[in-house]
């Protein structure tokens, strides 16, 4: 993964809001991922257009204390869970 990589939600996965858990969630064939606020913001930006660099800048604007390293780690975790795929 480089700052130019473009993450997107993988086909078949869907972002939703769970009223019961009062959290954003990702639904995919194997399971469910409950997202905290930062993760939800990152997933929201995994739209197949924004690069890792873009996402890091946008998040730094919206959330104080979010480091580029945190964003990279989060996307890596989402990739490992098979929820996000990377182009480039």
């Amino acid at each position: 993964m480089t700052p130019e990589s473009v993450p997107r939600i993988r086909p078949g996965a869907r972002v939703s809001y769970d009223q019961v858990r009062e959290s954003a969630v990702v639904l995919f064939p194997e399971g469910v991922l409950v997202l905290n606020e930062t993760a939800a913001a990152v997933v929201d930006l995994c739209d197949g257009r924004a690069t890792i660099g873009d996402i890091t800048r946008r998040l730094a604007d919206d959330f104080s204390g979010v480091e580029p390293r945190d964003v990279v780690e989060l996307v890596e975790r989402l990739v490992a869970r098979g929820v996000v795929v990377l182009d480039g």
């Binding site: 769970d18 019961v20 969630v25 639904l27 469910v32």
Partner: peptide
């Protein structure tokens, strides 16, 4: 099931 928390 949904009211209980089921999402899948």
């Amino acid at each position: 099931a949904r009211a209980l928390g089921v999402l899948q």
